[in-house]
Amino acid sequence: MTGEIDNLPGSQYPTNSEWHAMMYPEWTPEHAEKLFNQYVDINFNSCTKEGLARALHAVQDSYAPGHENFAPWHGTANATFPQWVKIIIDHAWYDNGSYFTRDVRNITKNMIKKWSKQCECQ
């Protein structure tokens, strides 16, 4: 479910960078972090499976090396060939789970447990 977030309409727009713990180039890192936290909270507290998937995806992305410190995201529409190569390599590494450290697994597990308890009646 969390992997599907990358394919949602508008998901890769720079203005939706907070969906992936990244930053629209015109934002400050502080603004990006604020939007990221709001996005995670709103989706997590929606008590829907889609909301949980969105919150998990954002938190998991925050651990991916290419997303560190709310890296700027310019989108894919005008990417140059070297940028596309980097995107492909980063996602090949990311998608095979290499970034998925014990911390990410534990955070994911704890978020699911908390969501299950908080949203059990939904």
Rank of each mutant, 00 (worst) to 15 (best):
L56W: 01
I112A: 03
G97R: 03
Q83Y: 00
W84A: 11
D95Y: 12
V104Y: 03
A21W: 04
N37W: 05
V104T: 05
T48E: 01
M111K: 10
V104R: 02
N37P: 07
H91Q: 07
Q118F: 15
W27S: 00
C119Q: 11
N16F: 06
K113G: 07
E33W: 09
Q122I: 11
Q83I: 01
N78Y: 05
A92F: 09
N37M: 11
L52R: 02
P72V: 11
R54V: 04
F70G: 03
K114F: 09
M22W: 01
C47N: 01
H67K: 03
L56Q: 06
M111E: 01
P29R: 03
T108Q: 01
K109D: 14
Q83C: 09
G66F: 11
A64Y: 11
E68T: 09
A71L: 11
D61P: 00
I5M: 03
L56T: 04
G10T: 10
Q83G: 10
E4S: 15
E26M: 15
E18P: 01
N7L: 14
F70A: 05
K109E: 06
M1E: 06
G75H: 02
G51H: 00
N16H: 04
I87W: 05
K86A: 10
T108Y: 04
W115F: 03
W73K: 08
A77C: 04
N96S: 12
F36W: 13
G10A: 03
C119W: 08
S98C: 07
I5N: 00
S17M: 09
N78T: 13
E33H: 15
R54F: 05
I88Y: 11
Q118C: 14
Q60D: 13
H57K: 12
K86V: 07
H20V: 09
A58M: 00
M23R: 15
S62K: 07
M23E: 11
E18S: 14
Q122L: 11
Y39D: 02
L52K: 00
I42F: 10
V85T: 15
P14K: 10
W73A: 05
L35S: 14
D103P: 04
E26Y: 15
Y39A: 10
V85W: 15
Y63D: 06
I89K: 09
N106V: 10
E30Q: 11
R105T: 00
E30Y: 08
Y24M: 12
A64K: 01
F44V: 08
G97S: 04
H20F: 02
G51Y: 01
S98P: 05
H74D: 04
K114D: 13
A21Y: 06
A92L: 14
T108L: 02
Q122Y: 13
P82F: 07
Q38H: 11
T101A: 00
N110H: 08
S98V: 09
Q122F: 13
N45K: 14
A92N: 13
S11Y: 09
I89L: 09
V59M: 06
V85N: 06
S98K: 12
K49I: 06
I89G: 02
P72K: 13
Q60S: 12
